[in-house]
Design a binder for these strands. Structure first.
Lengths: 266, 266
DNA sequence: CGTTACGTTGAAAGGTTTCAACACCAGTGG
DNA sequence: CCACTGGTGTTGAAACCTTTCAACGTAACG
């Protein structure tokens, strides 16, 4: 964590592969393809099954999108600098791709040589595994948000996360330039554009954020936003049924383990 | 795909690691811990960050759960025979674990030795990568479901998937024993228990499934269910705004690639 | 034979979506 | 210079679906 070495190839400081893998290893695996630029709207996709390429985002913001045949769309993830685009294959009746929301620089990694043979270091594989796993953890949060948060909670989580990830700290708070339309935001949050607009109006009136333009705003206090989100402790339960202890949190000290017992068996 | 070799250790036929990895490789990596049984309600979790263990489910059904401090719960995935439990770390204000819905047999894999050093084969790492990636694709589908499906579509997708995954084909259709309460189903589908009950009543009245008991039912025609789902082609759009071509599907022939162009720039 | 957990159903409340109208902006062309 | 046009964002009102709250039935259990 202390070594601030940036990737020799793309200069990205927080590259997931930075710590354990040198560019030379990728090169010997004929895996690294180097930097490519994508304009706003540029897409990355894969055909068929199995993940054969990864793209590390060096700069810019991209959306992982899935569209249904009837036109509905869900943005399943937002990818910013340092994240990895790990494409998923299209299921029946759906199409998935990654789309640049702002000009994006990506570093392409070809996994085919690694998966098919050769003998590559544990370090490079470990980095790949961590990259995929990080995406999995992001998806997990979004699943909880879409399944269990109401509109206001979703917007607050979204603004807080954007402020943290792409906000620029300044005297008045974190300034964010968000290259997304209301419809993009809606497709990320599982709402529709009008609802997003109304929620943002409420956010503005509550002074949780100040809007300079539809795509530029300032978050004065990220914690104030996060506290309107159930993932932050110390929040009173919303208009939900009183199921406060439906699921008791387990002991504070935990290790990786299994427990065979059962609280209430059928 | 042709070799039906089962894993030497657990006997699982469709083990993700079966094709390319022998037990001996895992053993030399000191990674495989062998079979463990979990009663209904038994849990698996991890503390701290980073994924250090995987569990391959040999038999039974398990739920990946995340709970919020106020008691809301989201089941972020269902794991059946052949799937891999890849734990996610707890975020602030949340707790995540895997829970056996029926008696479950798991095969534990310790990744620590592999991540930290040694020199293991590409095959074993490739299998790990595929396992995580498969989970990612499942999450992607669920994100679209939670963000964009209405209640009826969710139930139909759920029943079709359960029939496919754990249904037993017979003369009258696929018979499913589902060890989940209405509340479990609700927490998986982002609904509440009463709504699930009402939707299942509608499913019953439409003859899409016949219920023998609250946890046992028969799906006569999986395709009939799937057609009430927007992931299946040839379905008329629901009560949605007419955005039929908001996002045009791209050319039928595709390769892994990027396209730099832009349909409508800001 | 109470107790408890679970499932079903009804009625009212609540939040989101739909539909519509309007404002704003940038680009275009008369 | 200005009307026109398409894309985008905002706001209101009604419709719609899900949730909440409540009542009731059933099965398992001691």
């Amino acid at each position: 964590m202390s070594n601030k070495l940036s990737c020799e190839r793309c200069g990205l400081e927080n590259c997931l592969f930075r710590e354990s893998v040198t560019v030379r290893e990728f090169e010997s695996a004929r895996a690294i393809h180097g930097l490519t630029g994508l304009d706003r709207g540029g897409r990355i996709w894969q055909s068929g099954n199995g993940c054969r390429h990864l793209w590390i985002v060096v700069d810019g913001l991209a959306a992982l999108s899935t569209a249904l045949a009837d036109g509905r769309r869900q943005i399943t993830g937002l990818i910013s600098s340092g994240d990895v685009i790990c494409p998923v294959s299209d299921k029946e009746g759906t199409e998935s791709w990654a789309e640049a929301l702002s000009p994006v620089q990506v570093c392409e990694i070809d996994l085919r040589g690694m998966i098919n043979g050769g003998d590559h270091s544990d370090a490079i594989w470990g980095s790949l595994f961590r990259a995929t796993h990080q995406q999995l953890e992001r998806s997990n949060i979004n699943l909880v948000m879409l399944g269990r948060f109401d509109g206001m909670e979703r917007i607050c989580l979204f603004l807080a996360e954007m402020a943290r990830r792409i906000g620029i700290p300044g005297p008045g708070g974190h300034r964010v330039h968000l290259p997304m339309s209301r419809e993009d935001i809606a497709d990320y949050l599982g709402l529709n554009a009008e609802t997003v607009s109304r929620l943002l109006t409420r956010v503005r009136k509550m002074n949780l954020a100040t809007f300079i333009s539809p795509t530029d705003f300032v978050v004065h206090d990220i914690d104030a936003l996060a506290q309107r989100t159930p993932t932050s402790g110390g929040k009173p339960p919303p208009t939900q049924r009183s199921v406060l202890r439906r699921f008791s949190f387990s002991s504070p000290f935990k290790m990786d383990r299994m427990e065979a017992g059962r609280s209430s068996d059928k």
